[in-house]
Design a protein around this nucleic acid. Structure first.
Length: 359
DNA sequence: CACACAGGCAAGTTCTAAAG
DNA sequence: CTTTAGAACTTGCCTGTGTG
């Protein structure tokens, strides 16, 4: 059952309400990491948590190497603070080892071939020059390494997860790659225990109230490891029981519930939704399938009113402007106006006018 | 030359059952 | 109780092709 208390505190701790952050990198650092499977969705997730950043500001943060895009945690794409990419990858990569072995066998990628891939990609990227994905694929093909059937994509992902490469700035619509160590020369070095503790600190600071299970799921850790990490930083958090479940929140933060009338248009895959294993605190579970058909796969952008997920929305970027379609689960009534204001916020971020909005 | 459309490809989740 | 392994399933981006 949705809980107003949990929803409001999460909105605040996630940086959606209350004091907004100044810069994209502060947003990312506060959340620990920002899910970014869909780049264009993720930049808005960062933007809406800042005071007034535009999409170009988020892109600039990537160019300036403040934040990087790579494959930590559950092996999916996240924005992370540049200096934290290395230890985050190291902490989580080992968890994906068995998956990798299986996948490599399936794709017939042996150690020798992977070694060859590392050499080719390393040579191409050395000197901090971003190279586009198609070009890297081409280089592999030229060396006689087939990239068909998902092989090329897997190779790049594997080199990413093992900390060799990460995404660089976009080149037009193309993704590019760089060598992580060259791109980010000031990586922090943390031991396993320090990594677990640091990540727990970041997660609960930016996501609380949350459960240990949420944390373990989010990172892709076992419960045992998650508990160990959390116990090291537990003094920073306070415990609440809601419907009999243990939730941990930062000791600093709102105690009373805040603006029940707030309305936000959050992107697909937003941390507000994807940041938790259990999403029942912010949405009636009967709507699960509307966010993601069969409750998995591609997650729709969500409408949040007073912290509760009350609908999904869609945008189409045309040359002349943005067309927005709101699809609330039930009639919005006087909230409609609030969501139109939220749409305006999005349009400001994108620097494009809204040419059509309907609900 | 601009635009629409189709096809291929890619990403990531949850669920279940079984094993440790 | 926790972890592992496998299966199912979708939306949207990108590219190539055809049409006016």
């Amino acid at each position: 059952m949705p809980s107003r208390i949990i929803a409001n505190r999460r909105l605040f701790n996630q940086g959606i309400t209350g004091m907004k952050h100044e810069t994209p990198e502060e947003v990312v650092r506060n959340l620990g990491a920002v899910q970014a499977q869909d780049f264009h969705q993720a930049v808005w997730g960062i933007g809406l948590r800042t005071q007034s950043a535009k999409i170009s500001d988020v892109e600039q943060a990537v160019i300036d190497r403040k934040i990087v895009l790579t494959w930590p945690m559950r092996g999916t794409i996240f924005f992370v603070p540049a200096e934290d990419a290395k230890w985050m990858l190291k902490l989580t990569a080992s968890r994906l080892h068995t998956n990798d072995k299986k996948k490599q066998a399936e794709l017939e990628l042996d150690e020798g071939t992977l070694h060859q891939c590392r050499a080719i990609i390393g040579n191409a990227l050395r000197g901090c020059s971003p190279v586009s994905r198609p070009r890297l694929i081409e280089l592999l093909e030229e060396a006689g390494i087939s990239t068909k059937n998902g092989r090329g994509y897997y190779i790049l992902g594997y080199l990413g997860r093992t900390g060799m490469i990460c995404f660089g700035p976009h080149e037009g619509k193309q993704q590019s790659f760089v060598l992580l160590d060259e791109w980010v020369p000031n990586s922090r070095e943390l031991s396993l225990e320090e990594s677990l503790a640091e990540l727990a600190l970041r997660y609960f600071t930016g996501h609380g109230p949350a459960t240990i299970q949420d944390f373990a799921w989010w990172v892709g850790l076992t419960l045992t490891e998650a508990k160990r990490g959390f116990e090291a930083v537990q003094s920073n958090f306070r415990l609440d029981f809601v419907n009999g479940t243990e939730y941990w929140s930062p000791v600093t933060g709102p105690s009373a519930s805040a603006d029940a009338d707030s309305a936000f248009l959050l992107p697909g895959f937003d941390e507000y939704y994807l940041g938790y294993k259990d999403r029942s605190a912010i949405m009636e579970s009967e709507h699960d399938a509307k966010i993601a058909p069969f409750r998995n796969g591609v997650f729709q952008p969500i409408m949040a009113a007073g912290g509760e997920v009350v609908g999904i929305w869609k945008r189409e970027i045309k040359r002349s402007g943005i067309e927005i379609t709101l699809s609330p689960f039930s009639p919005l009534g006087d909230r409609d106006e609030k969501f139109r204001e939220a749409a305006k916020h999005y349009s400001d971020f994108m620097g494009l006018p809204i040419t059509r909005i309907e609900s």
